[in-house]
Amino acid sequence: MKGGKAVDNKRSKRRGWFSVTRRRDLKGLLFMLPWTLGFGLFFASPLYQSVIFSLNKITITARGRRMAYVGLQNYYDIFQKDIYFVERLRAFFTNTLLSLPVILVFSLLIAMLINQKIRGKGLFRAIFFLPIIVVSGPMLNMLIQEGATTIPLIEQYGIYDALLNLPYFLQEPINYLFSQLIMVLWYSGVPILIFLAGLQKIDTSLNEAALIDGASSWVVFWKITLPSLRNMVLINAIYTMVFLATSEINEVIALIRSNMLAPDRGYGIASAMAWSYSLGIALAIVLIYLLIGREKKPELHKIAVYRKKGGARHAR
């Protein structure tokens, strides 16, 4: 490796350990060091351990842990024998599929409203970010237990009856969406902020130029605002997905937690569940990536072309 780097920097006088790229690597790694250490110790190594656990049957006896290698048996068990796991997994993914777009659209709407020229902007921003201190804390469990997150009106006023006319596979998710509407809105705290940051970065002269050219604000939204926010949509989609997947009140997590400490099921089963669940989430995030995609950078390209032209003119 050393040799290869030295060839890269033939002109640099210092070689080997002190070559430019080597020093650059070193600086980067030094900045990374605390994070890497903590991550390795408290995340990567436990993660590795849990893979091993998921391939073992673990029984806890008075004398300590006993592990017996069982291969993929745990995975087979949770998908074939467990009555809750597959069902809850399915429920989670259907519900996420529904609430994710709602959260994204809602937070974009709010972000655009707050970005208007109105008085008391700061106050409104604060209020819409406020639920974050409820949603990510232990308060949420208590609020749910006390029924503060449901809208009692829904059950009283016919919405539930209207749902019965829908095909069955739609009934449950839509009912969920309505009953969880408050929760869904509370999850929008961070997405609103990220969208706001994006909106404020859009060059207003772009909007003005489009408006002068006769574009309606509807067209401006679709042709300018939304494409410029593409990256933000992606970040928000991933963030929200992760937030929903790891939230305290998630039913799949509750199942994993209860299995973890159950003497007859054991930690092996719980680890296998956690891994299957995480793979599912990873798959979902890959899908999000493919769907929304990374922002291409047309501006940079254009600038390069522009400069080339300018350069050519100078040469002449």
């Binding site: 849990s50 997947a245 990873a282």
Partner: peptide, 23 residues
Amino acid sequence: LFEINTIALMFVPVAVMIPRYLV
């Protein structure tokens, strides 16, 4: 390394509780 961090995002913290205790 950043990819690893993004993957770690997806992993449910409950699953590493007991291995963390061991560490």
